[in-house]
Design a protein around this nucleic acid. Sequence first.
DNA 1: GCATTCACG
DNA 2: GACGTACGTGAATGCA
Length: 949
Amino acid sequence: MENTTPRRPHLYLVDGSAYIFRAYHRLPPLTNPAGTPVGAVFGYTTMLWKLAEDLHKADGPTHLAVILDKSGKSFRNDIFPAYKANRPPAPEDLVPQFPLIRDATRAFSLPLIEEAGLEADDMIASYARAAQAQGWDVTIVSSDKDLMQLVGDGPDGSRVDMLDTMKNQRIFLPEVAEKFGVAPELVGDVLALMGDAVDNVPGIRGIGPKTATKLIQEHGNLDNALAAAATMKPSKLRENLIEHADMARLSRVLVALKEDCTLPLPLDAFELGAIPPQPLAAFLGEHGFTSLLKRLDGGRGSPERATQLHPPKAVTAGNTPATGAARQDTAAMPAVDLAAYECVQSLEALDRWIERGFAARLVAFDTETSALDAIGADLVGISLSVGPNQSCYIPLGHRGSDMFAEKPDQIDRDEALHRLKPLLESDAVMKVGQNIKYDLNVMARFDITVSPIDDTMVISFDMDAGRSEEGIGGGHGMDELAQRHLGHTCIAFKDVCGTGKKQISFAEVPLERATHYAAEDADVTWRLHRLLKPRLSAEGASRIYERVDRPLVPVVAQMERYGIKVDRERLAGLSQQFAEAIAALEGEIHALAGNPFTIGSPKQLGEILFDQMGLKGGKKGKSGQYSTDQSVLEKLEAEGVPIARKVLEWRQLAKLRSTYTEALQAAISPVTGRVHTSYSLVGAQTGRLSSTEPNLQNIPIRTEIGRQIRDCFVAEPGNVLMAADYSQIELRLAAHMADVPALKEAFASGADIHAATAQELFGEVNRETRGRAKTINFAILYGISRWGLAPRLGVTSEEAQAMIDTYFARFPGIQRYIHETLSTVREKGYSETLFGRKCWFPRINSKNQAERQGSERAAINAPIQGTCADIIKRAMARMQPALAKAGLPHVRMLLQVHDELVFELPESDVEAAKAVIRAVMEEAAGPSVAISVPLGVEIGVGASWGAAH
DNA sequence: GCATTCACG
DNA sequence: GACGTACGTGAATGCA
């Protein structure tokens, strides 16, 4: 189909030199068949390909040219000899790639501009202005901040913008304003003040980006700012401004772009046509860029055709925008090739991989163990990956498939770990894992502290929490991520080890099969990291990842390793006691029913109560079964039905026994004698942690009988447990976020918040009004409805509605918060916490009312619950360093229960630790976020967790 | 494998 | 006019 409407010409100017440096540092060190390094060239080639693919898009190029820096000095060196003088020489494996960049450009048959004595920036500026003068749109493909001076709209509606292909981000006025705080015309003034270390532009000493922006904002431009120095109050800043004013003026000239260079080729020469396939195919073949070569063949001639075969996915809110772009990226990676993986069985081979790891500066890393328990399982092997298909498996603890099989050939485990340790601990090498907390704990047993780390699971969570579509899962497990982002189906664990009774340990898997599985995991992790990491900043998730979740990974890992001591004998005693009571109740219940039945079967119980005994109030759900839950039984009890009370008691004891007193004994690690939970960093969509195997976040406390279980969590001799709780944190955050004056005042004055609410709502405070106020306060946090509130207060829905109305009237702000939150979520598809954590609500605009309203209630709650999670996570990340600084290295943080932290510490440290813990927790939102109500923390100490409350 | 129930914040 | 009704979790149980 021909598009007959003439388009405004759109010129793309590719800043080739800048791209190469960035690509070199971000891409793996590939080599071509001749052994020449081509990592940066590959990145460059892929970028050109993608730009060519965009030809028919509305904002794609009609004209395109590549601008390269010609080596040598520019006119700026005549003005300032030291300009760019402190640049280190290009890395030696980058140097041979420079000429190949020219080759790549010619292979695409694209015009190439390089002029001696001028820098690429000047040439780009001159071409941009020339094009703009003709009414063309211009996109500068670069992220160089100097070029941001050019961004803006022309008088005739044409525009100049920038495209950062690494982040897949357009740069226009808002982005410039975000970076510099000023309009593009003033960017040069800001740069002149702050200078540029990379280009050796001097600027003014002591002035960085923040101060430079502030000065220009305040005084309007550089000259005014320099002139105003004389009238400033005495300070180091004033001195510097006066003393180095000349340096600033010189810098201003250096950062100015020369916009009137002679143009070596006319603009019309840059018109983009179909790309001749032949020279391109030859180039791709020569350098082994087979994935692109295949697409060239598949598209029968040119990247332009390839695009038509694979139309990019439309991007809308609530959709998964990056998926389309990600799919295109993956095409640049070779397909997963199991045959490419190496099984490392000699120390020489291991050393080669360790060397490759250091050279790559980024290694995907995965451990295989004999069971799914990082604290107790044995290490069976380690896999590493330094690039697509560049992956190996190092078997260390395989046993052979049965007692008669020969033990496979493996290098000595301890020697291998000894050699791997420097790589895994090197600050210069990023270790990437999928749920790397697990691997951190495995390696900790061998005294290896893996650092620094990235986690693809957490990265995915921080961008995509809650983001699931029909037919597309929203999880963050590796198999799911591989499927979603790479279109790749991983070897299933059950295909390697089987399931159920026939399941074998990974230690028994033959090496070839184990290598395929394990090396693939590392390979896929590497690929996922390559795709997902750049999306973090592009999608505004860097802050939450870098500042909250990533620092938390080693902290939570340490908590899991500590575990907590439980008193086995005491648990066993309780279990016995409960068992006897259950047996007695069982007899009574059967007697009351008239015949024995399975009390634990809600189906049978419902039939006994409502059919056999003929009680009223039986309501069947959609499964056609009577509901027999607590509220139903309590209602019956109030009506004087004795069996209801007995069943409630039976249920409570059965629950406590099976879920707690029995399960906790079974959870005691034979290795450490303690209970080690596993926290999930991606368990709750709101950003909360979750706890499994066993869940230590739902240990009973609300009833006296359940409380006894908390008393079974104890400290080691000479130590105590300390529990530190945020008091009413969610309500405090709601008061702050919704800006409710009455609630804020109540918190500031330390009042009983539910009593204060009762006073406002009912005019008097007594047990009943306070209880109702408490219920309503919670209802607010959860997204209130008259129908939900009414049964909880035992009133009609009309009465409930009246109370909600009074609440909104007495606490102005709440209704506005709800309204504003919902409209942003409807528009953007996600909610955000005070720290920028996103939570997606793909069903917020659903036509199904129940589904939509459910999303609405969750969306009202998510920013509050999520901000609370962010705050305690920040406290957790700061806790150990703060304790160490205070000389309290023996205080160990063991548990987190959403708004509570549990510590174990020597008795002698109690008072000092209290002060540190309280300070860290109360100040955890700052300095980046100021909460307008105090965050209260209550601390208790005791020999057991129960006693510490 | 799903529904029900109930433990926690 | 019916729907299911508070937010977020995980574990145990019974049953198809």
